[in-house]
């Protein structure tokens, strides 16, 4: 199981309930496939940076989920066939999160070491930890 973020843009002219319906559908796919929803965020209407299919505005929705490849495949297929969906993107986040945790741990350890009275460790080693 991996962590993913799916962000998609819905046609802003359709009513709010429709968006909820789409969200429920995606949620259904994820949960029946054995995945877990961590967050559903409706980011609201935003101007698109460029025109997509004559749309200048879009309603952004963000899903943070724990899932596997099959679930993601199914979600993407469904998003593709749904008419009000203008565009979507899926991003894998677990690798990034792991890296972040490593840095955090390192910083904490370093801070603890400094508290015990040692002078500042060489700055160079932060970079090593970040890799």
């Amino acid at each position: 199981m991996r962590n993913y973020e799916i962000m998609f843009i819905v046609n802003p002219t359709i009513p709010e309930e429709e968006i909820d319906k789409i969200n429920a559908q995606i949620e259904g796919i994820v949960t029946t496939g054995g995945g877990k929803i961590e967050k559903i965020e409706k980011m609201g209407k935003r101007r698109l940076s460029y025109e997509i299919d004559r749309h200048r505005e879009g309603y952004y929705v963000l899903f943070v989920i724990v899932a596997n490849g099959d679930i993601i495949k199914e979600c993407e297929r469904r998003l593709r066939v749904m008419d009000p969906i203008i565009k979507y993107i899926t991003v894998r986040t677990d690798e990034e999160a792991r890296r972040l945790e490593k840095i955090r741990n390192y910083r904490q350890k370093r801070a603890a070491r400094r508290d015990r009275g040692a002078t500042a460790a060489p700055a160079q080693s932060i970079e090593e930890a970040m890799q």
């Binding site: 935003r46 940076s49 460029y50 997509i52 565009k87 993107i89 970040m130």
Partner: peptide
């Protein structure tokens, strides 16, 4: 390192129309 990460982020943002091409 950060330029590389920045590149990736900008390209992702462009894909979802948060930033222009």
């Amino acid at each position: 390192r950060h330029q590389r990460q920045l590149n990736d982020a900008i390209k992702k943002a462009r894909n979802i129309a948060l930033l222009p091409f």
